[in-house]
Computed example of a mutant assay.
Amino acid sequence: MPWCTQWLRHRCRDCCTPHRDHHPGASCPSAVAAQFRIPATRRASVSDHTSRWRRRKPDDRRLRPDPPPDEHRFLQRLHDIRHLLSGEWTWDVLVALLDKPLQYTKLLDTIRSLDNDTGWPSRKHRHLQDSQLNRTLRRLEQGELVKRTREAAFPYHTTYEISLAARELLVAASSLVLWAEDYGDLLDRVRQRRKEDVSD
């Protein structure tokens, strides 16, 4: 079973509630951190950074996250994240490397084996090309989200793995995935409008 399916079905070891039914960052960040193999020494930090955000229920518009102490800094960090994660295949690479480190060819085959049709017109290519993966890996290495290890002895295999920062990033992204699950109908409508705009 893919790790993402396991996560959506995963039940909190503390409250036995499916994570799809409550915000893991607010109620049990340690369980989600364990699911993404965050070291125990870092789980308290993950909890501190996520516990202040509360999942807003679709039927209760009054529930809102605590306002950030500095709106300018909050906006700046959002832009930082956008630039750090730029690229058509960034998320595909991070997800493919979540379970274990992979050599280049295996990583390429893993991503190609997935359903890469997102349905959004912004994805220009469904089939990952070798040159695209090279560019994506270089950008992720530069951003310290992927680590590259080359063996010292022949045949000098090169292995790629995600960093601790990338694992914690995926923990934080789980909140966005839950939001997308709640607002799937909205996303379907927007996706269709974007397709129509492109076809006009």
Score class of each variant (00 low, 15 high):
Met1Val: 05
Met1Gly: 03
Cys4Asn: 06
Thr5Lys: 07
Trp7Ser: 05
Leu8Ser: 04
His10Asp: 05
Arg11Val: 13
Cys12Val: 14
Asp14His: 04
Cys16Lys: 12
Thr17Leu: 13
Pro18Ile: 12
His22Asn: 02
His23Glu: 06
His23Pro: 03
Pro24Trp: 07
Pro24Thr: 13
Gly25Phe: 10
Gly25Glu: 09
Ala26Ile: 09
Ser27Asn: 14
Cys28Glu: 04
Pro29Met: 03
Ala31Lys: 06
Val32Phe: 02
Val32Pro: 01
Gln35Thr: 04
Phe36Ile: 09
Phe36Arg: 15
Phe36Tyr: 07
Pro39Phe: 08
Pro39Met: 10
Ala40Met: 04
Ala40Cys: 07
Ser45Leu: 10
Val46Met: 05
Ser47Val: 02
Ser51Arg: 05
Arg55Leu: 02
Lys57Asn: 04
Pro58Ala: 10
Asp60Val: 12
Arg62Ala: 10
Leu63Gln: 07
Pro65Arg: 05
Pro69Leu: 04
Asp70Ile: 00
Glu71Pro: 02
Arg73Gly: 15
Phe74Gly: 15
Leu75Val: 15
Gln76Val: 06
Arg77Phe: 13
Ile81Val: 06
Leu84Phe: 12
Leu84Asn: 15
Leu84His: 08
Ser86Tyr: 08
Ser86Pro: 11
Glu88Met: 15
Glu88Asp: 03
Thr90Lys: 15
Val95Phe: 06
Ala96Arg: 06
Leu97Trp: 00
Leu98Glu: 00
Asp99Ile: 07
Asp99Asn: 15
Lys100Phe: 01
Tyr104Asn: 02
Leu107Asn: 01
Leu114Ser: 05
Asp115Thr: 06
Asn116Pro: 00
Thr118Tyr: 09
Gly119Ile: 03
Arg123Cys: 09
His125Thr: 15
His125Asn: 14
His127Thr: 06
Leu128Ala: 04
Gln129Trp: 06
Gln129Lys: 03
Gln129Gly: 11
Asp130Pro: 13
Gln132Tyr: 05
Asn134Tyr: 13
Arg135Phe: 10
Leu137Ala: 03
Arg138Lys: 14
Leu140Phe: 00
Leu145Ile: 14
Thr149Glu: 02
Thr149Gln: 07
Glu151Asp: 05
Ala152Ser: 05
Ala153Ile: 04
Thr159Gln: 05
Glu161Thr: 09
Ile162Ala: 01
Ser163His: 02
Leu164Met: 08
Glu168Phe: 07
Leu170Ile: 03
Leu170Phe: 01
Ala173Thr: 08
Trp179Glu: 00
Glu181Met: 14
Asp182Gln: 15
Gly184Thr: 06
Asp188Ser: 09
Arg191His: 12
Arg191Gly: 15
Gln192Ala: 08
Arg193Ser: 10
Lys195Ala: 11
Asp197Asn: 15
Ser199Asn: 08
Asp200Pro: 13
